[in-house]
Design a protein around this nucleic acid. Sequence first.
DNA 1: AAACTCTTGACAACCGATTGCCAAAATTCT
DNA 2: AGAATTTTGGCAATCGGTTGTCAAGAGTTT
Lengths: 341, 341
Amino acid sequence: MTAPPGVSPQRPATIHDVAALSGVAASTVSRALSTPGRVNFRTRARIEAAAAQLKYIPNAQAKALSSGRTKAVAVLVADITNPFYFDIIRGTQLQLKAAGYTQLLVDTEESDEVEVNTVEQLRQTADGVILTASRLSDAALAAVAAKMPVVTINRDIDGVPSVLLDTPTATNQALDHLISLGHSHVAYLGGPETSSSNTRRWAALSEAAKERGVKVVRLGPFAPRTHSGAAAADALVHSGATAGIAFNDLVAIGMLQRLRERGVRVPEDVSIVGCDDIFGADFCSPPLTTVTAPVEQAGRVAVAMLLGKLDAAQGNLPRTQTILPTYLTIRGSTGPAPAAR
Amino acid sequence: MTAPPGVSPQRPATIHDVAALSGVAASTVSRALSTPGRVNFRTRARIEAAAAQLKYIPNAQAKALSSGRTKAVAVLVADITNPFYFDIIRGTQLQLKAAGYTQLLVDTEESDEVEVNTVEQLRQTADGVILTASRLSDAALAAVAAKMPVVTINRDIDGVPSVLLDTPTATNQALDHLISLGHSHVAYLGGPETSSSNTRRWAALSEAAKERGVKVVRLGPFAPRTHSGAAAADALVHSGATAGIAFNDLVAIGMLQRLRERGVRVPEDVSIVGCDDIFGADFCSPPLTTVTAPVEQAGRVAVAMLLGKLDAAQGNLPRTQTILPTYLTIRGSTGPAPAAR
DNA sequence: AAACTCTTGACAACCGATTGCCAAAATTCT
DNA sequence: AGAATTTTGGCAATCGGTTGTCAAGAGTTT
């Protein structure tokens, strides 16, 4: 396209400029551009031509103010440097952009207070909120959801639409994998106590252990960061377990590093399983056996659910929960149990 | 704090509610809450009490519409799943939140078209834009900067404030490091042709090579992703060079994987140097010798510069360029050159 | 051709703040 | 005490759209 023939004003064109140029009222321009059949075909064509000529872009603030909808969605993450969230954010970003929405990204720094304050602030700034791995209490989360449309990821509360990555099932597969390798004493290196997926996973794991008649102890909690892996590794060694299932890959990778420092060989002396299959899980040393989760998809689905909720007539809940399957990816960090001492 | 004694309205309180409750005009409330000395002390106290009781939160849209400032800054990244940007985003996020600004995150998917369209859209939605590793042409970037406040990261254009990570200097250090290990034939595995830091680094590297009398060839371009590392590794092997300096750590890590597959030992057969020191560079195998850059700081500085520009009286340019030093971090991926064949 | 229905487009109020302007009140000065 | 000066607070216009209401014009029916 060549440069348009029209003027190129310093200040962006408003709806009034378009109205003046096409010889109609501002309200007609508004209708022509939104309600299709409300305005004559020829008039609309004229208006659209004028809008194109002036490079008219509707002012989002004015639109939001009068319509009440901001076309923005806030995505809250607990820690933006955690690679787990990268893929979620990319998923939400892609899906939101496709729908013409803007993404407001907020790092809550693992603080429930920041989380609830942010939502309060954003109440009128965003049409809805996606809470990834919320640290809120059930009550606080319910209160938030009562005030504005919310979709959670990895957090299951009655009445709040959610996307769950079904890591417990795959974690049980991991346990079976370890058992088949001869391990009978396994440790779970727990994550934040306020983490819902942590709770769910431990519940599944401890029950599975009971059924299968193996010993699974819970250690921690450990912060979901690589440097916590040192403490986790030491705790694992001290526990006497021959295999560890970590809350997430960050902790698992940190454990790998620490164990190497201590001269504990993986997987010869001890086996390690992570969770999430984050960036780096495939090239650490040894490559990490982990639970692979469709994280980006979780972000996309969460956005789709939220937008569906926004578009739907009030009271119409399209879908209230989506469970995404995960699977076990076996790499080099798990191996046969060492011969009994 | 206990629950406030006041009513708890379903609809958020407006400035008029506060005005009514405190018995003044809406404009007085606005002044009391913004211009400190403009309103009587007692009156202000009364207004603040009313605001607190009603849990009044100013409507951001209305504020933006009438004031012209949105208190939002857009951060554009080329690829959100590239860990390099994680730290930038965290830096911008922290600094923006501290200043009471909202962060709009946009993934431009390495497309200059998306980049320029986004800026056009955001012109009235954000007070300013931070372009990280822009893929725009000089002309397009200048045009964008003429329309709204812009700060770039790793992109140096006259008249546009920028934050530069001084990777060229440290890359030259890397070259010296390799030379001291006996390497005399080095390859540079280039990144996107439209990347400014790629251009700057190669310029510095080729000149340094000339000065030092060693052979440095340029290969590529390679996409800044791990999977491009395979092609980069093959090209490196084919070139006959004994050491490779990669555009970034993603490519370098990808090379490490590919070289291992091919049975080429690192660093015995070939040495690899990365750039950025991203998440994973320290735990890949072997750990990557790389140029460590203060990436999060770059994000923070960029925001500080942008906000300074916004606050400053028009025409007052606080600072136009910040160069952040980087340094060489030597790990396990570099070693003595193999004996000449 | 008259009566009637349907379509179209303009007017104006409104969303929730900010801000220029001015008058009333308080303060200080002579 | 009265005049001059400063402080304080309210009115109303404005930002750029959306949307309810209604009259004029076009089209249809008998």
